[in-house]
Computed example of a mutant assay.
Amino acid sequence: MDAQLKNHKFTYPVLVAVAALALAGCSTAGPGGAESNPPTASASTSATQANAADAMFAAGMAEHHQQALDMSQIVLQADGTDERVRALADKIAAAQGPEIAQMKQWMQDWDQSMESMDHSEMGHSGMIPEQETQRLAKAQGDELNRLFLEQMIRHHEGAVKMAQKELDEGQHAEALALAQKIIDSQRDEIDEMKQLLESL
Rank of each mutant, 00 (worst) to 15 (best):
M1R: 13
M1F: 05
A3G: 10
L5T: 10
N7P: 03
K9D: 08
T11I: 11
Y12G: 07
Y12I: 12
P13N: 11
V14Q: 05
V16Y: 06
V18R: 11
V18S: 11
A19N: 14
A20P: 06
A20L: 12
A24V: 04
G25P: 06
S27W: 14
G30I: 15
G32P: 09
G32K: 13
A34L: 14
E35P: 01
E35H: 13
E35K: 14
E35M: 15
N37P: 03
P39Y: 07
P39N: 06
T40I: 08
A43S: 10
A43T: 08
S44N: 13
T45V: 15
S46R: 15
A47L: 10
A47T: 07
A47W: 03
Q49I: 13
Q49P: 08
A50I: 00
A50C: 09
D54R: 04
M56H: 02
F57P: 00
F57S: 00
A58F: 01
A62T: 07
A62K: 04
H64K: 08
Q66T: 13
A68F: 03
L69F: 10
S72W: 01
S72D: 08
Q73R: 15
Q73P: 03
V75E: 02
V75H: 04
V75L: 11
V75R: 03
L76R: 04
Q77W: 08
A78C: 10
D79S: 14
G80Q: 05
E83L: 11
E83C: 09
R86M: 08
A87F: 06
A89G: 07
D90M: 11
K91P: 00
A95N: 11
Q96W: 06
G97D: 12
I100C: 02
I100N: 01
A101W: 00
A101E: 07
M103P: 05
W106Y: 10
Q108F: 15
W110C: 00
D111I: 10
D111W: 13
D111S: 15
D111F: 15
Q112R: 14
S116C: 15
H119P: 11
S120I: 15
E121Y: 14
M122S: 03
M122A: 09
S125Q: 13
G126M: 02
I128L: 07
T133Y: 04
R135L: 09
A137W: 01
A139K: 00
G141P: 04
G141D: 02
G141M: 07
D142C: 08
F148W: 02
L149S: 01
L149Y: 00
L149I: 05
Q151I: 03
M152E: 04
I153P: 00
I153E: 02
H155C: 02
H155S: 02
H156K: 05
E157D: 10
A159H: 01
A159L: 01
M162I: 01
Q164L: 05
K165V: 09
K165R: 08
K165G: 06
E166T: 02
E166W: 00
E166S: 04
L167H: 02
E169M: 05
Q171A: 09
H172V: 01
A173K: 14
E174M: 08
E174D: 11
A175P: 01
K181S: 13
I182M: 06
I182R: 01
I183T: 04
I183G: 03
S185A: 14
Q186L: 10
R187W: 10
I190W: 01
I190E: 05
D191H: 12
M193G: 04
L196P: 04
L197T: 06
E198H: 12
E198W: 12
E198R: 12
S199H: 12
S199V: 05
L200Y: 07
L200D: 09
